[in-house]
Design a protein around this nucleic acid. Sequence first.
DNA 1: GGAGTCCATGTCAGCCCTGTCAGGTACGGT
DNA 2: ACCGTACCTGACAGGGCTGACATGGACTCC
Lengths: 335, 335
Amino acid sequence: MARVTISDVARTVGTSKKTISRVLNNDPNVSESMRQRVAAAVAALNYRPLTSARSLAANRSFMIGLLYDNRSPSYIMEVQAGVLEACEAQHYSMMVQPLVSMAPDFVERVEDILSRHRPDGLILTPPITDHPQLLDCLRRQGVPFASIAPRQPEACIGVMLREREAAAAMVEHLVSLGHRRIAHILGDPEHGAGIWRLAGYRDGLARAGLMEDPAYMVQGRFSFESGVAAMRRLLALPLRPTAIFAADDDMAVGAIWAAAEAGVSIPGEISICGFDDTTIATQVWPPLTTVRQPVREMGQRATQELLVRVLNKGEARMVEVDYEMRIRASTAPPP
Amino acid sequence: MARVTISDVARTVGTSKKTISRVLNNDPNVSESMRQRVAAAVAALNYRPLTSARSLAANRSFMIGLLYDNRSPSYIMEVQAGVLEACEAQHYSMMVQPLVSMAPDFVERVEDILSRHRPDGLILTPPITDHPQLLDCLRRQGVPFASIAPRQPEACIGVMLREREAAAAMVEHLVSLGHRRIAHILGDPEHGAGIWRLAGYRDGLARAGLMEDPAYMVQGRFSFESGVAAMRRLLALPLRPTAIFAADDDMAVGAIWAAAEAGVSIPGEISICGFDDTTIATQVWPPLTTVRQPVREMGQRATQELLVRVLNKGEARMVEVDYEMRIRASTAPPP
DNA sequence: GGAGTCCATGTCAGCCCTGTCAGGTACGGT
DNA sequence: ACCGTACCTGACAGGGCTGACATGGACTCC
């Protein structure tokens, strides 16, 4: 059962390879009747063009690359699912590349991928979105890329969300419940998400006329463990906060865990809320109040913009998607 | 900055393209001195072979495909990480394809990928491992594949784990704590994992001389929600079990959630344990007793076996990896 | 010393497509 | 009748690499 090639189809139809190619690539200059005859033959022979041959001849790969640095698996899986959906819609394929953005050979590794596979574009996820040398390198080489939640959204195409505003809204929610002593577990200070959410927390306090208290601002690193550690410190304070806004769900879940460990009732004694609305937010007890980011949609939208640019189908932009508050049982009025 | 090709390297060294090719492909018939000169030129020019050209000429893609049907994201991410590690070691790349194994065009979609990208091999994850038409199709077409935890491990290469034995060991653990009324939340009856873990549960009961009670065997579907539903049914029984073995962590976490909802103390009133040791197992309260599957390693080992077959480097096999009991705070003696 | 063997290297065609450009037809306007 | 234009189609030449085979020199063996 040898491979069916474009020549076989051409022979069957009684035309040239080029015409078959045109039909397959939706070239406008083909008569309707020819289009139909070709389509019939393609279906009959079950012909499918070989990607590597197409790539070589057309000098593009029909593939985009998704680069990520170990954030939470559920985040990446959601992004990946969205990217794949958008790729599929344009008959593109996706290759994924996990990377360590702190590694000394980081940029080199990306260059390696670029020169071996020549992806037509890249999707960058935080924190890779903000790696100056990488961005330089991509711009110099003219490789199109789209970013998800980059720190400098003006400079790129992709997708973003008003995280600062959302964080402020979350603090407002706590304030409206009656809380006055509201702590924040900070995210990674290098990540845009960490910076924006902290800024939003401050906005929220300011709007409510509350003073910032350094003791109530504990550094975390967007991980469950760092949430546990931060919560232990907060619980050790002489005057405990009555509400805690963690910069992501993983840390919020860690905070809930540490509260359980210490026998502190949530939300009875302390309210806790997070950010992201990952799967785990509804699987812990009590269900976590959080801000929903439509991560899958963000992957999809970013990819759509990337493909607009790659395929020259118009002006690609930085798209903004909306957050949604998810008020659940982990927040309640203070005791 | 035009692309550096193999011809540029050949010109620089003063030899033929073929010799460069031989060096790059580790062909044995090259003199040491030539090998070094070529290596130097490759490094100097920063040359990297173009994958699509290699694929076209060599009639192989230097790529394997990972097929999955929406299991839990953390499971897939772990498998994917393992597969990527093993690929990298052999300078292979990976493409992923999420699929719906119940879809009517399932096999056709896989065939599409096969003929377009010609992956040199496939990694199958449950439940795709057990799709008879797909296996037929792959065998007919001679496409190498490796399976992770297939239902019929004798017939394939890949990786497996003694799940039945592990499930029995878990029941034994509960029995040793003094439990006599032990319930089971079943996994998907179509999945090998569901079948083996149920069998192991029965083995465990039998070994302890305990009778099976149909009321204590509640159907689940390997999802959090199904675990919640199953737990609600168990809690409604006139004589509640004192321990519950859920066929996976997601369902166990669902059971813990439903217990919290009902105000039932874990492990005070009921002990709960799961299977898999996914991330969430240590993030819920109380931390979940479970069986650890080395999922990442499994992805890696399966890929190694696949590449052994693909590269004809010996006899590929069905590898067995070990489980480990993780006894945590969710199990304790009955009240 | 001649045949056989082995190894290192080179030549050339071809993998399967698409870009380029030329050719050919149909139709409308002058 | 002629030209211009628009549209459709085909011939051809690669894209960058490797497989098959040829070549030529060094070495072995009787």
